[in-house]
Nucleic acid binder design. Sequence first.
RNA 1: CGGGGCGUGGCGCAGCCUGGUAGCGCGCUUGUUUUGGGUACAAGAGGCCCCCGGUUCGAAUCCGGGCGCCCCGACCA
Length: 435
Amino acid sequence: MRLSESLVPTLKEIPAEAQIASHRLMLRAGLVRQMASGIYAWLPVGLRVLKKIEAIVREEQDACGAQEILMPTIQSADLWRESGRYEAYGKEMLRITDRHERELLYGPTNEEMITAIMRDAVKSYRELPQMLYHIQWKFRDEVRPRFGVLRGREFLMKDAYSFDLDFSAALISYKKMLLAYMRTFQRIGIVAIPMRADTGQIGGDLSHEFHVLAPTGESGVFYDAAFESGDAFSVPYTAAGLDEFYTACTTKYAATDEKHDVEAWAAVPEARRREGRGIEVGQIFYFGKKYSESMGFGVIGADGAKVFPEMGSYGIGVSRLVGAIIEARHDEAGIIWPDAIAPFKAAILNLRQGDEKTGAICERLHEALGADGLYDDRDERAGAKFAEADLLGHPWQVIVGPRGAANGVVELKRRATGERSEVSVEEALGRVLGG
RNA sequence: CGGGGCGUGGCGCAGCCUGGUAGCGCGCUUGUUUUGGGUACAAGAGGCCCCCGGUUCGAAUCCGGGCGCCCCGACCA
């Protein structure tokens, strides 16, 4: 992509409404623009990040056996009356009336809808288990939206739902998702720790919250340092693999401040105790027959008797992750994207626009990098290009100046470490694309 | 939902108390300059001063009512 032809409206000054680092940086780097309180438009660079996260989430959901579907954003109030949540949900639910005075709502979640779909489509125990997910925009009319996309009203979320015949099968689904989540976060390039959690609005008794570690997190967290190595995540999705992983995961201590258990904490070897702050980016629940029973979704079992499936639901805040990642990875100059989800792997900085040699090298780099490269071909001073590349947070910067160009070398800068080296064009390409 | 604050060119702000028809910095345009960390100078463009009503000869400024946005708390993926 050529910067001179792209919409990347960066800001030098910080908009007054942005209070925390990720919000400020998302605005300054031109990733999003606020359209109303808690509602954002995603601009080209921001959308690229969102899509990259979405792609990893999708791949890992598929890998654990979930099937992708797409449910609508607008739902019927009647559906929610079946589970009793239409009244229970409160003002966070955005209620809408159509021209026929029919009551609708903008979905804050989809348990009712997926249960209705399954009720209609699945009749026999032979058709279970099933795991389904979708990635869709949701709306919760937060009393007080804040922190940009971390606490918006409209947000992109992956939510999955499992349906099993009995508890032991449901537990397997739960373990699969827990594993899929750990792999997802690891691939994205962040440390997210699963913590025992309350089940809240959704109900049920087995639940984990996933917290990204960041100094500005909303909740205090206590965890075993063993979570920081992601060794246990490479097991296969077999019964033995899942058990090994689940045991490894759940026997280590991890809790948010409201669930913190001082005695259990004391049992963790002192050298491995970590305290910090976390941003919740996902939560998984097992809640049994709550919806299958209340909404009358039963299947005929092997013995001819009706069985209400055991359910679980599993969410990842995709848009929230963008903010959480920035919160965890930034410095004074700007964002520091993990390689896997950076909008571009590298920025190509032409320090002497109009110079024949630098121009030729930049064009060559741009072509070789394809969609992974952002070519800063604007007629700007070097300083402006450096500052903007740092702000945008590309993992690599390939700096092409007249000095090096004369000798056929470019400078390669790693954003995360600030490390620079003079290398040939070929080597720069190799490291950007290979690394 | 309790408490507080703010709406003035794209962004950050001043002006409001003590009414007289709008100003600064950044950004933008043009020219010169500069050329490896947001260059300097010059000349420009750009504003129903959130909206509606009232007071007044005259309202960004005073009064009333709306709307929007933000912060603290309670609540939440």
